[in-house]
């Protein structure tokens, strides 16, 4: 068994039990690397994603956080948790963006907004990725 499989099984088991992610998960490493260990506050950022995705290859998401300098998106159950970082420039009409992402399996998608005052805010959405009858 590869290290990655162990990690994914671990993350899956934890999600199933509804426990917080253990400190050693790849996803947590990625979040820590991004926030530099700062506290992450709940709220202040919106993450829209379908509750159920018909196919994990193309899952529409929208992130929004008023006053954010940037918003980073992680897919906790993917082989690499990083998805995208949106940096908003002076001519951004809003701190909001939509894209389409790949999810390897049912998992939590996390958006972390870095505000102009240096604080971090977080939103989490679980997306169930269905196994298609004939397509998936």
């Amino acid at each position: 068994m590869e290290r990655r499989e162990v990690l994914m099984l671990g993350a899956g088991a934890v999600v199933a039990l509804g426990l917080p992610l253990p400190a050693w998960s790849a996803a947590d490493d990625a979040v820590m690397a991004y926030t530099g260990g700062s506290d992450v506050l709940e709220g202040g950022v919106t993450l829209d994603a379908p509750e159920i995705a018909e196919n994990g290859n193309t899952v529409p998401i929208r992130v929004s956080a008023e006053g954010a300098e940037e918003i980073v998106v992680f897919a906790i159950g993917n082989p690499n948790p990083g998805v995208a970082t949106f940096r908003f420039g002076p001519l951004a009409g809003s701190q909001e963006a939509s894209t389409r992402i790949r999810l390897a399996e049912t998992q939590d998608v996390v958006a972390i907004a870095k505000m102009s005052d240096g604080t971090f805010h977080r939103a989490v959405r679980e997306v169930k990725v269905t196994i298609g009858g004939c397509g998936g």
Partner: peptide
């Protein structure tokens, strides 16, 4: 010439 949005993209962004 002024930035609107600058996106770092990982392989998890769809085709």
């Amino acid at each position: 010439g002024e930035t609107v949005i600058d996106v770092v993209i990982e392989p998890a962004v769809s085709t």
